[in-house]
């Protein structure tokens, strides 16, 4: 496995690593809201500058964080083309059969592609600087108010946490099973889509079986260690948000507000 999976955590000492996961998660959602608002060139300039600044601050290997973007280039081309060719509104620059190229469509395509790219970079920075367990802890804390509405927030956070923790295990297992099947003659490299689909069962069946077995074992192990539902569990390291965390949150709120203002004031 030479390529790292998207969302890989890189231990480090940067400013972003040191921030509290709750602040990072909230800030992430604020920036995400900002990105969703973005629809003009100045807004995208702000968004890309913010994403670039975060990437630089995180001192993550930029190549590793941006690699998923590169792997999805076809997806980006596709969403751009779909929007550019099928957008209903605006004057058609060129049309043929069901296709209809329009300026508005191209703008829309660029919009969607840029937003997805920004979201991927932001989430890459978040997961790159925050250990999976910290993210779960933060989700747990942020979900707490939902308990007032009768939603089993802590349980949901626990489920998410377990799911996140299982990802690397299952990825590793997929790799092993893929290699085991190749070693006994399977061919997964085939370019034909039909062949590739036909080569799925040898991978999917063993992985599902093992995932169910692992889930069973984990449930038993948790009960054996006294787990009785997630309500009122305490944390080993409970600490309040520090000044740096509040500062980061304020910055993110500022960027988000700027996006809203730009959205209202600047037309594309």
């Amino acid at each position: 496995m030479s390529a790292l999976p998207a969302g890989q955590f890189f231990p480090g000492q940067s400013v972003l690593h040191a921030l509290d996961a709750r602040a990072k998660l909230l800030g992430f959602f604020l920036l995400l809201a900002g990105v969703v608002c973005a629809a003009s060139l100045p807004a995208y300039a702000v968004a890309f500058a913010a994403a670039g600044a975060l990437l630089a601050l995180s001192r993550l290997p930029a190549r590793a964080v941006l690699a998923p973007l590169k792997r999805l280039w076809l997806f980006f081309v596709l969403i751009f083309a779909m929007n550019a060719l099928f957008y209903e509104r605006g004057d058609a620059l060129w049309s043929w059969w069901i296709f209809r190229l329009s300026k508005a469509g191209m703008a829309q395509g660029a919009n969607v592609a840029a937003r997805v790219a920004l979201m991927m970079v932001l989430s890459g920075v978040l997961t790159g600087t925050t250990a999976p367990m910290e993210i779960t802890g933060a989700l747990n804390a942020l979900f707490k108010p939902l308990a007032l509405l009768g939603i089993p927030a802590q349980e949901i956070a626990m489920i998410l946490g377990i799911a996140i923790q299982f990802i690397p295990t299952l990825l590793e297992e997929t790799d092993t099973i893929r290699k085991a099947q190749i070693a006994r003659g399977a061919r997964f490299e085939s370019r034909s889509l039909w062949r590739r689909a036909a080569s799925l069962p040898p991978l999917v069946v063993p992985i599902f079986l093992s995932a169910f077995r692992r889930a069973d074992d984990l449930a038993t192990a948790m009960e054996a260690r006294g787990y009785r539902g997630a309500a009122n569990r305490t944390h080993r390291r409970a600490r309040p948000l520090r000044r740096a965390d509040w500062f980061a949150l304020a910055l993110c709120t500022g960027v988000c507000a700027l996006h809203v203002v730009l959205r209202v004031c600047v037309a594309f």
Partner: peptide, 17 residues
Amino acid sequence: LRARVGLVFQYPECQLF
């Protein structure tokens, strides 16, 4: 080459499907 070299992984029972 792979046909000439056989590899049985640890816990090969996991590869049955």
